[in-house]
C-alpha cells in the first residue's frame, strides 16, 4: 500500500482521537454545578468560554499538525515540493483545520452569548499573557530549526528549497498552539488577581 494511503488512515485515526478528547473534555465541563446558591460553590470550576475555545483550538491544532507531519513524512520531505498532489493535500488539511475551528466557534457562540459574558477582566489578562507564550513558542521553534539545519547541512553549505516553507508552517502552527497552551495554563492557576 502507498504511503499516502497510510497517511489518510492516520488522519482518520487522529480525527477519531480528537472526537474522543472532545467528549472527555466536555464531559468534565458538564459535571460542574448549576450555579444555584442553594448548592453553594461547586467544587469543579465551570469552564470560561475562552477556555473552551482554547481546548477546541488545541485539539484541532494537534490533529492538524500530526496529519500534516504524517503526509510530509509519508511522501518524503525531499520529494514534497515535486508532488503536486501532496502539496494540495497539505493545503487542504490546513484549510480543513481553520474551517473546522471557525465552525466550532460559530456553533458554540450562540450558547455562550445566551449564557452571559464571553470575556471578562480575568480572561483578557490571561489572553495577553498567552500571547507571550505564543511568541516564546515561535522563537523556540525558529531556534530549533536554526540549530538542526546548521548541524545537518553543515557540510553541504546549503539547505533544500523546501525547508523555508517547513520553517514557516511549523513556526506558525507552533505559535498558534502556544497561544492555546498559554490560555489553558492561565486558567490552571497563573492568574489570581485582577488588574486596576
Amino acid at each position: 500500500m502507498s504511503p499516502m494511503y497510510w497517511a489518510l488512515i492516520g488522519l482518520l485515526g487522529l480525527i477519531l482521537l480528537g472526537f474522543g478528547l472532545r467528549s472527555f473534555v466536555l464531559g468534565g465541563f458538564q459535571r460542574g454545578g448549576s450555579g444555584d446558591p442553594a448548592e453553594g460553590s461547586p467544587v469543579e470550576v465551570p469552564m470560561a468560554p475562552l477556555q473552551k475555545r482554547a481546548w477546541w483550538g488545541l485539539g484541532i491544532g494537534v490533529v492538524i499538525s500530526a496529519a500534516l507531519a504524517a503526509v510530509v513524512i509519508a511522501a518524503g520531505p525531499e520529494n514534497y515540493s515535486q508532488d503536486r498532489g501532496t502539496r494540495l493535500l497539505t493545503y487542504g488539511i490546513f484549510l480543513a483545520g481553520v474551517v473546522g475551528y471557525l465552525i466550532v466557534i460559530r456553533l458554540t457562540r450562540g450558547g455562550e452569548a445566551a449564557s452571559g459574558i464571553l470575556l471578562d477582566e480575568r480572561d483578557r489578562a490571561i489572553l495577553s499573557r498567552a500571547l507571550v507564550v505564543s511568541l516564546v513558542t515561535g522563537f523556540l521553534t525558529l531556534t530549533a530549526w536554526a540549530v538542526a539545519l546548521t548541524e545537518v547541512y553543515w557540510e553541504a553549505r546549503a539547505i533544500p528549497i523546501d525547508v523555508p516553507s517547513f520553517i514557516w508552517w511549523s513556526t506558525f502552527i507552533a505559535a498558534l498552539l502556544g497561544r492555546e497552551v498559554g490560555i489553558l495554563m492561565g486558567y490552571a492557576g497563573w492568574h489570581s488577581h485582577g488588574e486596576g
Binding site: S41, M47, A48, P49, Q51, L118, D120, E121, S192, G194
Partner: peptide, 20 residues
C-alpha cells in the same frame, strides 16, 4: 464577568480589580 470568575471569587481564589 463570567460565571467562572464569580465561582473563583466565592472560593477566595481570585481577587477582583477595583472596577469589578
Amino acid at each position: 464577568c463570567t460565571r467562572q470568575t464569580i465561582v473563583l471569587l466565592e472560593q477566595g481564589r481570585y481577587v477582583p480589580s477595583l472596577a469589578l
